[in-house]
Amino acid sequence: MTTTDQPDRAVTDPVGLITDLVAEVERELGIETIQAVVTAVVGGRAKSRSLAKALAMRPAVLTDGRSPAPRAIGDLLIELRKAGASAIAPPVCAECGKKLRTLQRKGQDWYCSVCGQETAECNVCGSVRRVGFRDRKGLPRCSMCPDIDDRDPVTVVHELITTMAPGADRDVVAEALRRSVPHRPHYRQRLVWALEEKPRLLTGGWIPVIVATRGRLIRPRAV
């Protein structure tokens, strides 16, 4: 396989190109096994083409495991190792060099669970620590300063909806909210904050909330 053929194959035969690049390095796995792993990892056409182009540009990642590189390449290295590859390198942490079985990303680099922790100045106490939370404005907070909201989410959403549809049934709103975010209080809180910030979401079809009044199902009027 010549390097001049690779750009065209990345478009016309991305799975075949990736398989061949891996096979040139890895002798322990058969072509069929490599192809099966590649197919499982690359997914759709756009993703497979992107991965093929990146791998053709720097095939050395197969043996050194180093980023920067797309996450899909890291996933490919991990899955090839699980399949029994020995010449293929596992991804390595960009900071400490640890060999990874799972990875986190910041930008185009791979990190272990320790080095991958985001640090920032807490918006409340001002300490530079690992980011434990993001508040309702998306600002970082440490684990000691969570953004606590003791309000009942159903009450807040019901009040928002009644400004657009007076007489909305609170029980129906509660059920719609429960179905939208079941068993996830933290996500429900964030959904409430998003609706408070942009009530138009209720009329844009993004949030599956339907209200009832006088026994008839209606959609809230645009604001």
Rank of each mutant, 00 (worst) to 15 (best):
C112W: 00
P90M: 05
G215E: 01
P59F: 03
K99A: 14
E159S: 15
V124P: 00
A212F: 01
T19S: 06
I210M: 09
D171R: 12
R178K: 13
G126H: 08
K198Y: 04
K82Y: 04
K137D: 13
I218N: 06
D8L: 15
W193Y: 07
I210T: 14
Y187L: 10
G30T: 09
S180V: 04
A85S: 13
A194H: 05
A46C: 01
A83K: 11
E196D: 03
G126T: 08
V181C: 02
K137F: 10
V114R: 12
I210Y: 06
R66E: 09
H158Y: 03
Q108S: 13
P220A: 15
P182A: 08
L62G: 05
G44L: 04
V38M: 05
A87L: 11
A69R: 05
I34P: 02
E175Q: 10
V211K: 04
Q189Y: 06
D109P: 00
D169N: 14
V124D: 10
K82P: 00
S67T: 13
W206T: 15
P220V: 14
Q108I: 14
R188V: 03
R71Q: 11
L139R: 15
T102W: 00
S113M: 05
G215L: 03
A60G: 09
K99Q: 14
I18E: 00
A222C: 03
V156T: 14
S180Q: 02
T119K: 13
G132Y: 04
D5Y: 08
V128H: 12
P166A: 10
K53C: 06
D5E: 15
L51H: 05
I73W: 01
K82A: 11
R219C: 07
A174Y: 02
D5H: 12
V157R: 08
P146W: 03
R130G: 09
V156N: 05
Y187M: 11
M57G: 12
V42C: 11
D109K: 14
L55E: 02
A120S: 15
R129C: 10
G205R: 03
A168F: 02
Y111S: 10
I18W: 00
D13V: 08
D171M: 07
D75S: 13
R66D: 00
R58F: 01
A176W: 02
T39P: 03
A174L: 06
G74W: 06
V157P: 04
S143F: 06
S113L: 05
G132L: 03
P220M: 07
L55W: 04
L51V: 15
D150G: 03
L103W: 01
I148K: 13
K82T: 10
P146H: 06
R66G: 06
D169M: 05
E79D: 09
V209C: 00
A174K: 08
R27E: 11
E196N: 08
P146N: 09
K98L: 13
R130S: 12
P220F: 01
I210G: 03
A222L: 11
A72I: 15
T12A: 11
G74L: 09
D20A: 14
A10W: 01
T102Q: 09
A69G: 12
V15N: 01
G204S: 12
V211R: 07
G30L: 01
E95A: 15
E196Q: 15
A36E: 09
Q189N: 12
